[in-house]
Computed example of a mutant assay.
Amino acid sequence: MSELACTTAPSIGPAVRRGEEDTEAALRPVGAELLRRAAADADAIVATARADARAAVTDAQEQAAAITERARAAGVARAATHRAAEQRRLRREQRAALLAAQRDVYDQWRRQGAAAVLRLSAEPDWQHLRDLLRAKAIQLLGPEAEIVADPAGGFVARYGGRRLDLRLSTVAARALDTVEPELTGLWT
């Protein structure tokens, strides 16, 4: 059998330990300097990052404010356009309503005026007015004029190529046409 020999590693002596301690002591200022520089670099990087972040936030706020202002201005412009269109629409509606009311008043005036003239044939002095119309027809066309009575009142007289319409409905329309220009003052 063989004997196992046990060998132990040589022990590190005090001189080696002292050399390591001297090396560590000599490297401490270098390590401290490296640590200081690393800390300074880290502080500079953090400061730059914070400044960049502040600048980015400021830029984003300015952009947001500009976007908000453009949106507000666009909204105001859109609202003004809508308001102007709505006002035009309302003015058109008001104008249409006014014109419709004026037309109704005008039509009613024409109907009532024509009806008033047509009622002349029911008046007690109608025969006298009828005789005046006949005399006017004879005066204008001559005694040979053909005079035909209108069932609603009045006459149509003809002679040669001439025709005289003295029907009450025609007389009423002419009378209303004569007075009509005076009505324009009612609408202004």
Rank of each mutant, 00 (worst) to 15 (best):
103 R>D: 13
103 R>F: 04
103 R>G: 13
103 R>T: 12
104 D>G: 13
105 V>E: 07
105 V>M: 07
106 Y>I: 13
106 Y>L: 14
106 Y>Q: 05
106 Y>R: 08
106 Y>D: 08
107 D>P: 04
107 D>E: 14
107 D>L: 14
108 Q>D: 09
109 W>H: 02
109 W>N: 05
109 W>L: 15
109 W>C: 12
110 R>N: 02
110 R>T: 03
110 R>V: 11
110 R>C: 08
111 R>N: 04
111 R>G: 01
111 R>C: 03
113 G>T: 03
113 G>W: 04
114 A>Y: 00
114 A>S: 08
115 A>Q: 11
116 A>L: 10
116 A>W: 00
116 A>V: 01
116 A>R: 03
117 V>K: 00
118 L>V: 03
119 R>F: 07
119 R>P: 04
119 R>T: 10
119 R>W: 06
120 L>K: 03
120 L>A: 11
121 S>M: 09
121 S>Y: 03
122 A>G: 14
123 E>M: 10
123 E>I: 04
124 P>F: 09
124 P>A: 15
125 D>E: 15
127 Q>L: 14
127 Q>I: 05
128 H>V: 15
129 L>I: 07
130 R>G: 09
131 D>V: 12
131 D>G: 12
131 D>H: 09
132 L>D: 10
132 L>V: 14
133 L>H: 00
133 L>D: 08
133 L>W: 00
134 R>T: 10
135 A>C: 05
136 K>A: 15
136 K>E: 15
136 K>H: 15
136 K>Q: 15
136 K>N: 12
137 A>R: 01
137 A>Q: 03
137 A>F: 01
